[in-house]
Design a protein around this nucleic acid. Structure first.
Lengths: 211, 211
DNA sequence: GTCTATAAATTGATAGAC
DNA sequence: GTCTATCAATTTATAGAC
């Protein structure tokens, strides 16, 4: 966050950003916020640029000045959120136990931001279609997530903390599936289950870690 | 299937259906087939009546003669598939072990009809939005499915076939979540996992049944 | 950087002839 | 039951003024 404006050919010593840069950056941020909110309810195809622009308080043309197309806007929304997710479970978790805690914290966080959770749940289903603008992104993202979790569970395996008949690969697949599936049920009826609690149960059935 | 035409005020003795009825019925079936296919790729909102009508070989107006609106058409598609799903796991499974086998068979069947699987995966995510025409349907459907599985797992519990720290309710929730989540990963990359095999693993980690 | 105006396409649905 | 013709609304995106 903060002032992340990029001053070209300026080694970061410029004390005051040129007005236009600062304005542009804050507008972009506002657009991303609104886009996330709009895409989250109804999905990518239903959410319209008009709705997003209105929410920000600018025109559609004004919006498209910052993001050249709707698909690009979606990409930006997704990329921005990935940054945040990595704070819970880093791409290369050295400590498997710590990674388990991170997963639970992520589930707890997701329950606090239903909008983001809805966005991802809906988009990962939409993006199942090969023609969807975010298809490649989600295929890659799931590969990466699986790789990250395989690393975490491998660490546990090396410490004898994986239950028998459970491999790092199978644990990674099933854990991701569980998180995704819990979201659907939770989004349809939030009183029916506690995502973090349910994930904890799953991790206990797969590992010997006290989560 | 077969000739299910309803003959009003006719106690079912009419041996031959009036031509118009038979035609209407077969057209409806063709529309439902096409609709499932179209909705399956891209979801409900992206699929258009035009595309469905073209696939059937009739005009949009002709299509809307049979289903008065797009939302009604979707309802019909969903209702028709539920009939089929009940053949794998009946609403009131007396035998819990048999229900487990039914679940695995259902997963195997799903892998054989990717179109239907895509449809449900995408729609259950879309329908998360309260404004979606199928929202109420999916809320109800998940309630019913959970109730059915609670019955099945309760039967297992009574026979001492549930692992410790597993309740019928928690097993029902986690099993549904696992099936849903596996579908997402499988649809994004079908070589990455075997849904039935993965489900089998899960059921083994929850019950003592040889599945 | 933001606007107005507009293009160009697609959508779900209706009216009325046959 | 099916068609043609048409409507009214929305959509993303562009052009060009300020």
């Amino acid at each position: 966050m903060a002032t992340t404006q990029k001053a070209p050919d300026d080694a970061g010593v410029g004390p005051k950003p040129r007005g236009s840069y600062a304005k542009s950056e804050s507008t972009r941020a506002a657009i991303l916020d609104a886009a996330l909110e709009v895409f989250a309810q109804g999905g990518y195809h239903v959410g319209s640029l008009r709705e997003i622009a209105t929410k920000v308080g600018i025109s559609e043309a004004g919006l498209l000045h910052h993001f050249t197309s709707k698909a690009r806007l979606l990409e930006a929304v997704l990329a921005r959120r990935d940054q945040l997710a990595a704070q819970f479970v880093p791409p290369h978790p050295g400590d498997g136990v710590r990674a388990m805690s991170g997963l639970i914290e992520l589930a707890q966080y997701n329950a606090c931001v239903p909008g983001v959770t809805e966005l991802y749940c809906m988009l990962s289903a939409e993006a199942t279609a090969p023609t969807h603008p975010a298809h490649a992104y989600f295929v890659r993202r799931y590969e990466q997530t699986r790789a990250t979790l395989v690393e975490a569970f491998s660490n546990l395996a090396a410490r004898g903390l994986l239950r028998e008949n459970v491999t790092p690969a199978s644990a990674a697949r099933s854990t991701i599936a569980m998180m995704d599936g819990l979201q659907v049920q939770w989004l349809l009826d939030r009183s029916v289950l506690d995502m973090a609690e349910e994930l904890r149960d799953h991790l206990r059935s797969v590992t010997l870690v006290e989560v």
